[in-house]
Simulated scan of single mutants.
Amino acid sequence: MEGSPHRVSDVMSRAAVAVGRRAQFKDMVERMEQWQVSALPVLEGDGRVIGLVSEADLLPKEEFRGTDPDRLTRQRRLSDLAKAGAVTAEELMSTPAVTVHADATLAEAARIMALRHVKRLPVVNAEGVLEGVVSRGDLLKVFLRSDNALADEIRRDIVDVLFPAPVEPVHITVTDGVATLTGRVKDAARIPLATRLIHGVEGVVGVDCRLTATGET
């Protein structure tokens, strides 16, 4: 994973567990347990994603077991009550599936997950064919980058570009993902830009920019 921003293709799992529309309830529960996943893409014969079955889609069967919901509950939870009586992926799946493309940035994928309240996204190509799955945990992999790798990227792509001839050498240290910069530069206006760009480096946890410019005390 060189350079920022990273893409979904850098972190996604390509060995995706999926089911067909006729998959049975128990089979889906068993697959989720076996593969430790919280959702299963539902595919057409050509591998195109047509929906998604999540743990939330399966839980109504247990929630409403042996109950007789009142009228208000039936009105408010009509969809969940229908899923409580469902037995196949086609009956249970949420459709259309919330998906993402492999070339999306990790920030874009994170926004989709947050807005749509999902933990996993099927990764599809332009035709909607499944290429893999990306999870919340996958998006956090960038924070496993080494401090040295982060410092090298900050030096190469930001500091050397914005401050090619500093008044004093710019020192960069990264500890536990927090980048600290010290030194003196000529252009004070570029210091806030440098801070903003460093915050955008995938894997950086925080920035402590102590750069000063010529004339500053």
Rank of each mutant, 00 (worst) to 15 (best):
E2A: 10
E2K: 12
G3K: 14
S4N: 11
S4H: 14
S4M: 02
P5Y: 10
P5H: 06
V8D: 04
V11Q: 07
V11K: 05
M12G: 13
M12V: 09
M12C: 07
M12A: 11
R14W: 06
V17F: 06
R21P: 13
R22N: 12
Q24F: 07
F25I: 07
F25E: 10
M28S: 09
M28R: 09
E30I: 07
M32S: 05
M32H: 10
W35C: 04
Q36H: 12
V37H: 01
V37R: 03
S38W: 02
A39T: 04
P41A: 05
L43Y: 13
D46N: 15
G47H: 06
R48L: 00
R48I: 02
V49L: 06
V49S: 06
I50C: 07
E55Y: 03
E55H: 00
A56V: 05
P60H: 08
P60F: 03
P60D: 04
K61A: 15
E62F: 13
E63T: 15
F64C: 05
G66V: 10
T67P: 03
R71S: 11
T73S: 09
R74Y: 10
R74E: 13
Q75N: 08
R76V: 14
R76H: 12
R76G: 06
L78F: 07
S79P: 03
L81E: 07
L81D: 10
A82Y: 14
V87K: 14
T88L: 03
S94C: 07
T95W: 07
T99S: 04
T99N: 05
V100C: 05
A102T: 06
D103K: 08
D103Y: 12
A104G: 02
I112C: 00
L115A: 07
L115E: 11
R116M: 00
H117C: 00
H117V: 01
V118F: 02
K119P: 00
K119T: 14
R120N: 07
V124L: 04
V124P: 11
N125G: 14
N125L: 05
A126L: 06
E127T: 11
E127V: 01
E127K: 12
G128F: 04
G128E: 02
G128Y: 04
S135A: 15
R136V: 05
D138H: 11
V142K: 12
F143N: 13
F143S: 08
F143W: 09
R145T: 10
L150V: 10
R155L: 02
D157E: 15
I158P: 03
V159C: 02
V161K: 15
F163A: 11
A165Y: 10
A165N: 15
V167S: 08
E168C: 01
P169M: 01
H171C: 00
I172R: 00
T175F: 11
D176A: 14
G177P: 08
V178N: 03
V178S: 01
A179E: 03
A179R: 09
L181K: 01
T182W: 00
V185L: 01
K186Y: 02
A188T: 05
A188W: 06
P192K: 08
L193Q: 12
A194R: 06
A194E: 04
T195E: 13
L197S: 11
L197H: 09
L197Q: 14
I198D: 02
I198M: 06
G200A: 15
V201T: 14
V201N: 04
E202F: 02
V205K: 14
V205Y: 07
V205L: 03
G206L: 01
G206Q: 12
T214P: 01
T214R: 07
